[in-house]
């Protein structure tokens, strides 16, 4: 926006599965220490500058290696896996809506990355061993409390 990048926040990825290479969930905001989060944000902003990204929302992935964030990928779009919904639940800023507004030339309210967040949001994926599904039990037992927002 206006030649400057603003960071919505950082999402932690939770890995599982064989060899722990599979994303089984995400949580927002990140639980990384502030200095590590700042370093991740700096890598993200620098990567966008490096490729000349200038409009819309972007999704950057980094991995912490020896306490240094290393760039994994840059995407010229909001994150997938319902991450924008997690961000919106916590910050009130929906990256998808902002992304569309940016391309429509609409004014945007600058996300405040320093906002002291009082809440968190997370997504956990269902998974099962390989095979054919024979039964699904417990759907009606899941408590739809104020914290459980959606089961799909």
């Amino acid at each position: 926006m206006n030649g400057k990048h603003y960071v919505y926040g950082i999402t932690d990825k939770i890995f599982g599965g064989d060899r722990h290479f599979v994303k089984v969930g995400h949580s927002f905001p990140s639980s990384l220490p502030p200095e590590t989060s700042d370093a991740c944000a700096a890598v993200a902003v620098a990567s966008l500058d490096a490729v000349g990204f200038s409009i819309g929302a972007a999704h950057i992935e980094v991995k912490i290696d020896e306490e240094e964030p290393k760039l994994i990928e840059i995407n010229g779009r909001p994150g997938g896996d319902r991450i924008p919904d997690l961000v919106a639940m916590v910050t009130g800023h929906d990256p998808v809506v902002d992304h569309v507004h940016a391309f429509l030339g609409a004014g945007l309210e600058v996300p405040n990355s320093t906002l002291k967040r009082q809440s968190g949001a997370a997504i956990s994926f269902f998974h099962a061993t390989p095979g054919t599904i024979r039964s699904i039990v417990g759907v009606d037992d899941i408590p739809y409390t104020k914290d459980v927002k959606e089961v799909v």
Binding site: Q118, A121, I123, S124, I142
Partner: peptide, 28 residues
Amino acid sequence: GYVIASGKNSYHAWGQAETARSMLSIGV
């Protein structure tokens, strides 16, 4: 599929989502 949950912070939200997810059993 998935569960989306909120919480007091990201740890709490993850716990809520995982608790709900673990209540569902998929027979394969």
